[in-house]
Amino acid sequence: MDFSVRVIELPLSVLALSCGGLAVLGVACVLALRVSRSRKSPDEGESERDWGIPAVDAHAEGSSPFHRWDTRIKIVSLLFTMLCLAALEQLAWAGLGLIASFAAVRVARIPFRYPLKRLAAMGAFLGMFVLVMPLTAPVRNGDTLVTFEHAAFITLNLRGLLLALLICAKACAIAVLMEPLLSTAPFPRTIQALANLGVPTFVCQMVLLAHRYVFVFQDETRRMLKGMAARGFEMRSNLDTLRTVGNFLGMLMVRSFERTQRIYDAMLSRGYDGSFPDAAEFRAQRGDWAKAGFWVAFGIGLLVADRIIR
């Protein structure tokens, strides 16, 4: 069998430079996150970690083709496009998908820091792929290897790097597209559209209730942590911290169970029968289907091009 591997040898300085570049990039990312965090809560002025939960429908009030789109059709077409994006196998087409996602954010008039925040959340997970895959991908026929002078123990597999970048591009394209999908309609309306599409009512009810209580319990958590800090508690790497965290979790559970009981009784007494009354009606028009046609065609087009054009 014909087994050929191309080897590119680079001077060691290239390795040192790229490692330094990566380190600078990492520090810059951390600093950028710190800055965005401190800017988010200037009035609190505390050094504690920000556990702020972003609103999922921050731009529901805007006006754009995405806002005017029938929510049901928007969900189905964009989810289909996301599935197509996830199935891509070539970096160039995934990159095109990423550009299209950012274009969609622009059209939906969502500030770019919202999708960027989503990308930052995936940073550690995707960074692991980019750092590890070039080093560990097994060598196959036709691969290109990069080695360095005086450091023969480091061999980078270019195929591994490309694969990792492909994963990053796909993940980013889909994550960025989540913003036009979710934040261009009020969250209850999105859930109502899901129910209209056949998702069981109890699932929708629970997502809505859970989403509501995330913010309630976040407040509870903040209050408890503030109380703990006032009594001199400080998180460290020791068993005492773990014991305190364990007690804290237990207390959070006890309080949330008791609170739930009261809330549920109150809901029942106000006539809750397992569903909320429908707020809005959906009416699909020609424009809605045209937008759906565009996104579905885009997804299929990407997928076909990905498989045919090498």
């Binding site: 556990w51 319990f217 958590t221 959070l252 949330s256 809330i263």
Partner: peptide
């Protein structure tokens, strides 16, 4: 069902807590 929704959010919030290591 509603209680599970509420417990879910309590766990969700709990999972945002970072323990130093």
């Amino acid at each position: 069902f509603p209680k599970i929704a509420v417990v879910t959010s309590a766990f969700f919030v709990a999972s945002l807590i970072h323990v130093p290591l």
